[in-house]
């Protein structure tokens, strides 16, 4: 299994896009930090930007959706899936090695964005706020950032498990990416309707889109009144949905003829 993860990492590290994406993330974060410093009126308080890792948290979602769909779909696109599968390894191992690689990749992104946001804070906003300042609902700035990271990490993986499944079914990057991105951002569009419907039919609170509110709920307890779920319930819900999508992926991948 370690060999397989190494091989996946080898491929990832030899793609130019891997480096381009990391550089893009840092550049975008820097731009937002500079804009926030120079035009605080338009870009809001620097604390808020810092908590969201200077929009880094959002961009990571995009990049990970693209990476997850491509790590599966590229094998079908390039015809390399046969070379991967006819070896002594089991199919399940091949798929799991890809998941592990993506998990490591997502952790890498969060660490990178976190470190860079700290750096930007020290360089640009050292006199503006302290990490220990109170931010929201009694949480300090740094606590808020960490809660945000944990919350988005869980919800991002809920989306990614769906993207991995779709890439597996459609064997195409485009389909998986579009549905993943639309799915992630559909929440903000339909959440009001969803909350209304949930008032009427309470069981709807268990739908996967509701789990996507986890980062907000971690930061402020009042969100609980909308989601109707306690925080542990949401954490479990996210994990269960992620596991379900992964399990379907696994079955689809194992049964596929190539």
């Amino acid at each position: 299994m370690i060999t397989l993860v190494k091989q996946e990492t080898f491929k990832l590290l030899h793609k130019k896009s891997t480096y381009a994406v990391s550089a893009t993330l840092l550049i975008i974060m820097t731009i937002y930090a500079v804009l926030t410093k120079n035009y605080p009126k338009y870009w809001g308080a620097p604390q808020g930007q810092f908590v969201g890792m200077f929009t880094g948290a959002t961009w990571i979602v995009f990049f990970m959706i693209a990476a997850c769909s491509s790590i599966i779909a590229m094998e079908f696109q390039y015809g390399t899936i046969k070379e991967l599968l006819y070896r002594k390894y089991y199919r399940g191992q091949i798929l799991v090695s890809k998941w592990i690689t993506m998990l490591l990749y997502s952790i890498y992104f969060y660490v990178l964005a976190f470190v860079w946001s700290l750096l930007l804070k020290v360089v640009l906003f050292n006199d503006k706020f302290q990490l220990s300042d109170t931010y929201q609902s009694g949480h300090s700035v740094i606590e808020a950032q960490w809660l945000g990271i944990i919350g988005t990490f869980l919800t991002v993986w809920l989306v990614l498990s769906l993207v991995l499944l779709l890439a597996n079914i459609f064997k195409s990057t485009a389909a998986a990416i579009s549905i993943g991105i639309i799915g992630y951002f559909a929440l903000s569009i339909i959440s009001n309707v969803m909350f209304l419907l949930m008032q009427k039919w309470e069981w709807l609170k268990w739908n996967p889109l509701n789990m996507m509110n986890l980062p907000q709920q971690l930061l402020s307890d009042s969100v609980h009144k909308m989601t109707l779920l306690s925080t542990p319930e949401m954490v479990c819900g996210s994990l269960v949905y992620t596991a379900i999508f992964m399990a379907i992926s696994y079955v689809v991948f194992k049964r596929r003829s190539v």
């Binding site: 793609k15 390039y78 046969k82 089991y90």
Partner: peptide, 24 residues
């Protein structure tokens, strides 16, 4: 079989067209 790949350790193959990663 698809679930039994032990023997594949002794096998090399080229099927249909070569699978090639353009970036490597």
């Amino acid at each position: 079989s698809p679930t039994s790949h032990k023997a594949m350790d002794k096998v090399g193959a080229l099927i249909e067209y070569p699978g090639i990663y353009p970036f490597l």
